[in-house]
């Protein structure tokens, strides 16, 4: 190839590249325009007045500097509140333990590689997990309160549901990643499905499941702090009450307590998971 030929070859490539780049730019512009139009349309649908957005910073600043600060932590130390915190913790433990007792078999039945029956049991177990994840926990708690009345029982059941969804999915993923040869080895001894689960599957996933269980409690505890908002037990009740009567300093004290407890629970869960692994 002579250098002339090469130059003209480059010219052709260069021209087509620049042409493509022009088209790409037009596309980018069109997409940008569409995004902007869409953005304006969504503001219209949501019915958010722009001047309200522009004027929101003043009230927000007042809120943070005057109404919320400083948090009233003495309020949190009142026996009633401390008792509700204890109730929150108990609810989270019960709900998560109960949820795990259901999530574990669901994870086994809903794992494609080991499920005893792929046509019926597998889809059923999967559906339980998927629906448990998709139904919002707080609404579920409201429904439960309507059925079972106010109190931590409804909250515990709500946490049960969220644990099934949360732990069920993660645990099933772990089961689907196991070594099938070891399962088949157990099966080859003539063991029934239950025995296969306890001797072939459980030993392989146990460390991961323990980690997921602790993580589930951590997550359940976070959720349990607000269940009281809808009367489903725990400290959330007082938080809602304080905000509705505009006692912001005490409310902020409770929020601070919640954040502190969540950070503690996270640290505890982190510590336990590392210790047990």
């Amino acid at each position: 190839m002579t250098s002339d030929e090469m130059t003209s070859g480059i010219d052709t490539i260069h021209q087509s590249y620049l042409a493509d780049r022009r088209i790409r730019r037009i596309w980018k512009f069109v997409i940008l325009l569409m995004t902007l139009t869409f953005g304006v349309w969504t503001v219209d649908v949501l019915n958010i007045p722009i001047e309200r957005v522009l004027r929101m910073f003043g009230p927000l600043a007042t809120m943070v500097t005057e109404r919320l600060m400083p948090p009233d932590l003495y309020y949190v130390m009142e026996p009633l509140i401390l008792a509700s915190i204890l109730e929150t913790i108990e609810m989270s433990v019960l709900g998560v333990v109960g949820g795990l007792l259901i999530a574990m078999p669901m994870a086994w039945l809903g794992a494609w590689n080991v499920t005893p029956n792929r046509n019926f049991i597998y889809p059923m177990a999967r559906a339980v997990i998927v629906v448990a994840r998709a139904v919002p926990t707080l609404m579920w708690a409201i429904l439960l309160v309507a059925i079972f009345g106010f109190g931590p029982f409804a909250g515990t059941l709500a946490l049960l549901k969220s644990t099934i969804g949360f732990a069920g999915k993660l645990m099933a993923e772990q089961v689907e990643a196991i070594d099938m040869e070891r399962v088949d080895a157990v099966r080859a001894t003539g063991a029934n499905e239950i025995q296969v689960f306890f001797y072939g599957i459980l030993p392989q996933v146990k460390p991961a499941w323990v980690g997921i269980s602790i993580y589930s409690w951590d997550s359940g505890f976070r959720g349990s702090t607000i269940l009281g908002f809808v009367g489903a037990g725990g400290m959330g009740l007082y938080l809602r009450a304080q905000i509705s009567v505009m006692e912001y300093h005490t409310a902020m004290g409770l929020i601070t307590a919640v954040i502190g407890l969540v950070i503690l629970s996270e640290a505890l869960s982190h510590y336990l998971r590392h210790k047990l692994y």
């Binding site: 130059t7 480059i10 590249y17």
Partner: peptide, 20 residues
């Protein structure tokens, strides 16, 4: 554009023009 063109010429020179 002139940098792009020189870049292409260099790609041709080192033998990767087909992969740019």
């Amino acid at each position: 554009p002139e940098d792009v063109k020189r870049g292409m010429a260099l790609c041709a020179r080192v033998g990767i023009i087909d992969h740019i």
